[in-house]
Computed example of a mutant assay.
Amino acid sequence: MKKTIIAAAAVTAAAVMLSGCSGDSHSRKGSGAADRPESWAVEQRTLEDITPMSGEEQVYVTRDEETDEVKIIQGVLSDDPVNNEREALDLIASYSQIMGYIDVYSELQYSGATEYNHKIDYRFDQYCDGMQAGYVELMVDYDEGSRAVVLNSHYTDLWGFSTDPKVSEAEAVKCAADKYKTDKGAKPQLTIAEGPVLAWIVPVIDDDVTEVYIDANNGNIIREIHAED
């Protein structure tokens, strides 16, 4: 049966991130794009290596409507079964070029597996300098011979992203205090917010708002967390 790759409805990545870029320095000091790796630790697969699932006639690929990055692949991703988290990570690594991953072995940490309806989802959280930056899930279908059938990526490309804040903790609290009441002992937490944007999370005292996100580069409030959120 001839393989057909269908582009599914585009999705917009919504990654809220918290810690640590992959590698040792690419996200900390803003390495140039020319230094981006072009080879990976394992042999790379292509979309042509994917075959349709049982009862299907095509492979489905979902891309981000703004960046055209591949976000979801649905089909039999490999002839080999996936029996544990290490094999799951190795398979994810083999799609690094397609998915835009830099180094999954340093970026992704196994966070658990969920079993349901003859399937199991392996989840790996993406970290950058101790902050969660996204996640990747690999679905394995027991009815397909324990082979992986869906790669769902909420990965954020942090190449060249700096985790060195230009705004200090104290300055972040002052920025939040321009609009909200803050406690003298307020302790901001550095995070990677959607964008990606390096930000300080500052707790505030307000009837409706519990904390605000302060852009760590310019001091602007970029997000407000409400009590009902």
Rank of each mutant, 00 (worst) to 15 (best):
Y122S: 01
F124V: 00
S146Y: 13
R86N: 15
Y105C: 04
S31V: 14
A34T: 14
N220V: 05
D215L: 10
A199C: 13
I102N: 09
I92S: 00
M139P: 00
V16S: 13
I205M: 12
Y110S: 06
R28P: 00
D141L: 02
V70Y: 02
A9T: 13
S39G: 02
E57S: 15
S78K: 03
V61L: 06
A176G: 06
G185M: 07
Y127Q: 11
A14D: 15
R123A: 15
M1W: 07
H154W: 15
V149L: 00
A8V: 08
K181D: 15
E87P: 02
E137R: 13
L108H: 05
M17E: 10
N152K: 12
D229M: 08
A176I: 06
A33V: 09
S168L: 01
H26A: 12
Y116C: 05
C21F: 11
L190T: 04
V104D: 01
L77F: 01
D121R: 11
R36V: 10
D164A: 11
I120N: 01
D64M: 08
V11H: 12
M53Q: 08
D125L: 10
I98K: 02
V11Q: 13
W200Y: 10
A13C: 08
D206M: 04
K184F: 08
N152Y: 14
E224I: 11
S25Q: 15
L18N: 14
H226W: 13
V16A: 15
D207P: 03
A177F: 02
E144I: 05
D183M: 13
I225M: 11
L198Y: 05
P52F: 03
Q58L: 03
G160P: 07
T191D: 09
L198G: 02
E66L: 13
P165F: 00
V61A: 06
K166I: 00
L91E: 03
Y155P: 07
L138K: 00
N84F: 08
T62V: 13
A186G: 07
D229Q: 09
V59A: 07
L198H: 03
I201V: 14
V140P: 04
Y110I: 02
E48P: 00
E48H: 03
Y122G: 01
R223C: 06
R45E: 06
D143Y: 09
Y180E: 01
K2G: 08
Q126I: 09
N83C: 00
Y122P: 01
I205L: 13
T4G: 02
D129F: 12
P81L: 06
G20L: 05
E144V: 06
Q74K: 13
Q44G: 06
G20H: 05
A33R: 11
V209W: 06
A41G: 07
D121E: 14
A10F: 05
A34E: 15
L190S: 07
Q132N: 12
D206Y: 03
R28I: 14
G32Y: 08
S153I: 02
M17F: 09
I201Q: 14
T12K: 14
Y122E: 04
L91V: 04
M53R: 12
Y116V: 09
D80Y: 04
D80S: 09
R28C: 12
V11Y: 12
Y95P: 05
W159G: 05
D141Q: 00
Y60Q: 14
K174M: 12
N218Y: 09
